[in-house]
């Protein structure tokens, strides 16, 4: 009996492992075409639980801060040297007195703080008081062990300030609210919302370039001169420790 020849068909290809080779080739081609996307995604999913999360971010930020601090020191040194050359008032960061707030009246008729350092510690009337965020006020009076700080927000309290971007001067006047008013000295002052307000670098009464706040609102048509409402960057209501700058005292 003659055996009939088996039909030639796809099953022969299947049996001859041709498809295995085909699949491997297709897979390799896919990997090459997607540049290993699937592998990388899978790898990232595997690594996710053991990846350094916020700690890594903090290390990077710390590194950035160190770099910025070094740059700041260099710039300050440069600034001091240039200010000496121009005979302008210096901002000496070494001459600071740290003090704790012992009594706070930041929303009453009088906006003031009592701090635990007095003239025995070298605090004098007129010295500048700064907190985290910038300038908060000036020393109004001192006792042997305590001092009273008149805040920038106190009604009628006036200091000279300027807008860093436009280089225009104004008088920062406390209005009782948390947002003092910056009254410009000339009519052509153009300030924008978001401009930084600092002490004037040419000031002889206050240390230069201390941050005061950010412009929140501008009234250009006001008479006799335009004004801006300034949001203070340092909040006296939340500050427990302040620093007194010794270099602008009224002796």
């Amino acid at each position: 009996m003659i055996k009939t020849r088996r039909k030639i068909g796809v099953h022969l290809l299947w049996k001859s492992r041709f498809w295995v080779l085909f699949l491997v080739c297709a897979l390799l081609f896919g990997i090459r075409w997607t540049k290993g996307a699937a592998y990388l995604d899978f790898y990232s999913i595997l690594l996710k639980p053991i990846l350094p999360g916020t700690a890594q971010k903090e290390w990077i930020k710390e590194g950035e801060n160190i770099e910025k601090n070094i740059r700041l020191k260099l710039l300050e040194q440069d600034n001091t040297r240039l200010r000496k050359a121009l005979s302008l008032k210096e901002f000496n960061s070494d001459q600071r007195i740290s003090a704790a707030v012992i009594s706070r009246s930041s929303r009453n008729w009088w906006k003031q703080l009592e701090i635990n350092k007095g003239y025995k510690d070298g605090v004098l009337k007129g010295q500048t008081v700064i907190g985290p965020g910038g300038l908060i006020g000036l020393i109004d009076s001192t006792t042997p062990l305590t001092s009273r700080v008149r805040l920038l927000t106190d009604p009628g309290h006036q200091i000279g300030a300027w807008i860093d971007r436009t280089k225009h001067h104004g008088i920062l006047t406390g209005m009782g609210t948390n947002r003092p008013k910056l009254i410009f000295l000339n009519k052509n002052t153009i300030a924008k919302v978001g401009d930084a307000v600092t002490t004037s670098p040419a000031s002889t009464l206050l240390p230069p370039n201390l941050t005061i706040g950010i412009v929140q609102f501008v009234e250009e048509k006001a008479l006799p001169s335009p004004y801006a409402i300034v949001q203070l960057t340092a909040s006296p209501e939340a500050i427990d420790w302040v620093q007194i700058l010794k270099d602008n005292a009224k002796k």
Binding site: W109, G156, M175, I229
Partner: peptide, 16 residues
């Protein structure tokens, strides 16, 4: 303080 004769100061005073 003549500079306080405006609305900002009055609103704050009423609040206090």
């Amino acid at each position: 303080y003549s500079v306080l004769r405006n609305n900002w100061f009055h609103s704050w005073s009423i609040y206090v």
